[in-house]
Design a protein around this nucleic acid. Structure first.
Lengths: 116, 116
DNA sequence: CTTATACATTGATGATGGTCAATATCCGGG
DNA sequence: CCCGGATATTGACCATCATCAATGTATAAG
């Protein structure tokens, strides 16, 4: 499992909210918590911010290492977590790896908060 | 420091967004990460969900221990973290402690995501 | 094929976090 | 004043995490 189902279309339900359980179930809560875990680190928030602010919409690892004052392996690790959370998209062109925001992903997270 | 400044009015800035740094600064990132840390646990998400679903708008600890299948000290610990994150409000009436959602707090978190 | 560059992975370490048992505190009733 | 119930706090234990050094992988250049 690389991408989390929470932020995907996930059309396996009939429609809208399941409306079955009166409150958040244990499994749903665990899945949603994974997304917030990905956001629960200052450096990962900064990574998202930097990538979002980039005019081209994407950044390579080499441009992200310096502003965060972190080692390259650490930055790669954080980026991987953000990709697995469904927040970032990774595209490798040549020797470089370009990371970009998944369109609407942050809005989906906001939606997670709305229908808690 | 009991309440986090992020979700407070925080009118110490002139207006709107600081617009100084081109991206998220280290200190801002640290503060915002604290809020997401509070949300990065399945049981805390369930606590918020249960309290939100309550028709009275509030729940006491005794009503929250059973549905989560956790010990009372653990529930109190989670509730404290949510209060310190500015998401829950605590009001003690008699022997009981009633927890309720801080109005607009979840919307403010959504706003945090919007202007990353 | 060799080398250099960009990035990912592994392993280790120190720090943080979730949970519980035990205990403390606060409040209402008798 | 004493007792019992509801909640908070403390201390400890185990798991997870953030970070780095070292190494592995892949791609482009020569």
């Amino acid at each position: 499992m690389t991408a989390l189902p929470i932020l995907e279309p996930a059309t396996d339900e009939s429609c809208c909210t399941p409306a079955g359980a009166p409150a958040l179930g244990a499994d749903e809560a665990k899945q949603k918590a994974l997304v917030f875990k990905a956001l629960a680190d200052p450096n990962r928030l900064r990574l998202l911010s930097i990538i979002k602010a980039e005019s081209s919409g994407e950044s390579c690892v080499c441009d992200l290492t310096e502003p965060l004052d972190l080692g390259q392996p650490t930055v790669s690790h954080h980026l991987k977590m953000l990709v697995e959370a469904g927040l970032l998209h990774r595209e490798k062109r040549g020797t470089w790896a370009y990371y970009s925001l998944v369109p609407g992903a942050l809005d989906d997270v906001a939606g997670l908060l709305a229908d808690l």
